[in-house]
Design a protein around this nucleic acid. Structure first.
Length: 757
DNA sequence: GAGTTTGAAACT
DNA sequence: CAGTTTCAAACTC
């Protein structure tokens, strides 16, 4: 990473110089120019890079790109650099393929742009900015470019991308991405009026592909930048509303700060696994799209408004509304239309929904991982594919939205991975839904799936006007969409104000109302990596089931794919993901119930279900560590052993991730998968609980509690106060492991932020 | 598709 | 805070 950056810097320096020189002098002289020579002499690196770069560029401009490719921003920087270089230094080289030519042209077009932002001094910034910067000149430019890209991109083109990616794998993808960025520049420039011809050279497909990719990239970056997790709503929304979303895509500046950091991170990942990363990024964007997708239309509109550009983009808006696939819900249709009006804000509003996502994430971790794996194989494909599918299947509205949505996927950042999956699923799901109209069962499944994924939800509200937590969409912080069959729906962009107000009210009542219901334990985070078990997560408040035995979706814990915790007040808990208690609560209850034939059967069923969700992942994680497996195993175990509460997932999770934790946890798990953990869990759970989790964590930072608690605070290294609750069996060993884990794991903060407000 | 069950959310 | 009502999803037929 660092090396590359350094090189880049060097490159930049070189590049800049050349450019400057070039500006003054003709290209032919460029090489000869004393300045150039001087520069070369100064940094040995330069020559090399220049050499390399030139080669790659000449041969395939792409070679160098890959690294860049990872993050849009980075890529942009690189691209800009490339462009510069290519233009000036390269010109001599014959190879400037059509692309080069294009680039050159772009540079011309962009050059101006780049110049603006890119003051010599700020080259770094300029680099990062370029794309966006290019846009800035014309506020509308971005929009235009996007428009073009969209237009250019046809489902077919997308498909082609998929194919290419799949066949070639990551390298190809990268290539595409790189180009995409360049293409964006091109597009923009072209839009501005430079060359349509150039595009033709590369081939329509290529351009379209590029445009798509570029957009995807854009999305990604924005998503990253936007990390704004839904701060829980009220407050956050307003903040968000301020325009960020709309701008995010377009405005480079805002993102840059964050983006750069992100990019670095991404780059590192790329080194490890480009494919995955790309996929994740894309997924982020995708996912967000799903959630927001409705927003998109409005947002676009907003953008347009800003830019004052009338036109093509807008078509999407209208399309979105009308297009939005299956409109089951009457109200929804309206909403969409409305959305246009307020779209801007609406999109923002959507962000709030993030909380929901978080929940879903926890539940879906397994799936997500699976996705990752896949993505790793051909992340690009996956990523792209969904959209394509969406395009194809989905009416125009959806299509547009998906691509459009770029932005901020970050919300899920931590969850990045999960998000990706969610997104992909969501997209796919959407497409499917639309394609296949629902049969009741299918519908349910879809719903389930959607929930799991955290993707778009559909509600069927009749009296709540979708302004209460009864409404899943509202609860998720998402506007209702066409698929919803709600009546008198106010959860639409049009009624954004109302929605926001309502949200605020609800939040005032319960600050965590929109926070994810399922919280991952600190351990869980680790678990996520290795294994996605729901076990690691717990329901924030716990359930209150009396008849369902926590074996049906009536139970929020079960629905969230997590085990019941101490917080639960459920009766006869048989939650296959983990029974609440065990030990403390009412072991007796559990045992008895479990003993009951139903309980076991149900468990198995559930288990099977879980497997379905997780299996893909499991293979990889395989290790016993995986909570899910544990859960399953444990289930059998438990049933036999019964008495004890289902294990603390924490231990499990920890095991997966950290060596220490693993050792302890594993031991623990092996010995007593559940039992050992139980107490700990309880403690943990207690910590987790409630609305005030963060506060509690801070205050109580018992070592244990702190560990488990989801809140970042707990994670904080905060001194393990050894409260040493009598409960903790595991004693020191576990604690230590946990602590380690916590430190290592930054995550989970999401909740806190959200909850906090 | 209609009706029932369920438990969260909202209300008192 | 507890009890009741409302609500919509989940589920069943």
């Amino acid at each position: 990473m660092g090396d590359e950056k350094d090189q880049e810097k060097d490159m930049v320096v070189v590049m800049d110089t050349p450019e400057r020189t070039q500006i003054a002098t003709p290209l032919s002289k460029f090489e000869d120019s004393p300045v150039f020579n001087y520069i070369n002499s100064l940094s040995p690196i330069k020559p090399v890079k220049s050499m390399h770069f030139t080669q790659t560029f000449s041969g395939l401009s792409f070679a160098s790109l890959p690294s860049i490719f990872t993050s849009p921003h980075v890529s942009t920087l690189k691209d800009s650099r490339f462009l510069r270089r290519h233009q000036f230094p390269e010109p001599s080289k014959p190879e400037p393929n059509s692309e080069d030519v294009k680039k050159a042209e772009i540079n011309e077009g962009n050059g101006n742009i780049s110049q603006n932002p890119s003051n010599p001094q700020t080259e770094f910034n300029s680099n990062s900015v370029p794309e966006s910067s290019t846009v800035p000149p014309n506020g509308s430019s971005n929009l235009e470019s996007r428009k073009l890209s969209y237009e250019a991109v046809s489902p077919d083109t997308i498909n082609t991308l998929k194919v290419d990616n799949s066949s070639s794998s990551s390298s190809i993808v990268q290539f595409v991405n790189n180009h995409s960025q360049n293409s964006q520049l091109r597009m923009e420039s072209e839009i501005e009026g430079n060359d349509s011809l150039n595009n033709k050279e590369s081939g329509c497909d290529w351009d379209s592909l590029i445009s798509d990719a570029s957009e995807l990239l854009n999305f990604d970056s924005p998503s990253d930048t936007i990390p704004v997790p839904y701060k829980t709503s009220g407050q956050s929304q307003p903040i968000l509303d301020p325009k960020p979303e709309a701008n995010n895509d377009n405005l480079p500046e805002k993102h840059e700060g964050a983006s750069t950091s992100l990019t670095t991170f991404e780059v590192a990942e790329l080194a490890d696994d480009i494919d995955n990363e790309v996929g994740s990024n894309l997924y982020r964007g995708m996912r967000r799209r799903c959630l927001v997708f409705e927003m998109m239309g409005s947002r676009r509109k907003h953008l347009e408004d800003i830019s004052n550009v009338p036109d093509s983009n807008e078509t999407p808006l209208p399309n979105d509304n009308s297009l939005i696939p299956t409109n089951t819900g009457i109200g929804n249709g309206n909403g969409n239309g409305n959305g246009n009006g307020n779209g801007n804000e609406s999109s923002r509003c959507i962000l709030p929904g993030i909380g929901l996502h978080l929940n879903t994430l926890a539940s879906t971790l397994v799936d997500q991982k699976v996705v990752k794996n896949e993505s790793s194989g051909s992340g690009g494909q996956l990523i792209i594919a969904p959209p394509s599918a969406a395009y194809n299947s989905i009416p125009s509205g959806m299509e547009l939205t998906t691509p459009m949505s770029d932005q901020p996927g970050l919300e899920n950042d931590q969850n990045g991975v999960p998000v990706t999956e969610d997104v992909s699923k969501a997209l796919v799901f959407v497409g499917n839904e639309e394609l296949s109209q629902t049969s009741p069962r299918k519908k349910r499944r879809r719903m389930e799936h959607a929930e799991e994924t955290g993707a778009c939800k559909r509600c069927n509200c009749k009296k709540s006007k979708c302004l209460k937590l009864y409404c899943e969409c509202f609860a998720a912080g998402v506007y209702c969409v066409e698929p919803c069959s709600c009546q008198e729906c106010f959860n639409k962009p049009i009624h954004e104000d109302t929605v926001l107000q309502t949200r605020k009210q609800i939040e005032s009542r319960n600050p965590l109302a929109f926070a994810p219901k399922v919280i991952k334990t600190s351990d869980s985070t680790q678990e996520d990596e290795s294994s996605n078990t729901p076990a690691s997560a717990r329901h924030k408040r716990g359930c209150n089931c009396k008849k369902s035995g926590c074996l049906k979706k009536y139970c929020e814990c079960f629905q969230g794919g997590v085990g019941c915790s101490i917080n639960c007040r459920c009766e006869g808990c048989k939650n296959t993901f983990g029974r609440k208690d065990g030990s403390d609560m009412d072991p007796e209850m559990n045992v008895v119930e479990e003993c009951e034939g139903n309980g076991t059967d149900v468990r198995f069923q559930k288990i099977s279900i879980i497997q379905q969700h997780h299996e893909v992942v499991d293979p990889i994680s395989t290790t016993p560590a995986t909570p899910s497996r544990f859960g399953r195993q444990s289930i059998s175990m438990i049933s036999s052993s019964k008495g004890k509460p289902p294990r603390s997932f924490l231990a499990i999770g920890g095991s997966s991730s950290s060596s220490l934790s693993l050792s302890s946890s594993q031991r623990f798990g092996k010995l007593n998968p559940f039992r050992g953990g139980l107490k700990a869990d309880k403690q943990l759970q207690t910590v987790e609980d409630d609305n005030k989790i963060p506060e509690i964590l801070e205050e109580n930072s018992s070592p244990i509690s702190g560990v488990k608690s989801c809140s970042p605070n707990s994670k904080r290294v905060s001194p393990p106060h050894t409260h040493s609750h009598s409960n903790t069996h595991s004693g020191l060993g576990q604690r230590s492991s946990r602590k380690l884990i916590l430190q290592s794991i930054p995550s989970f903060p999401c909740l806190t932020p959200n909850s906090k407000q």
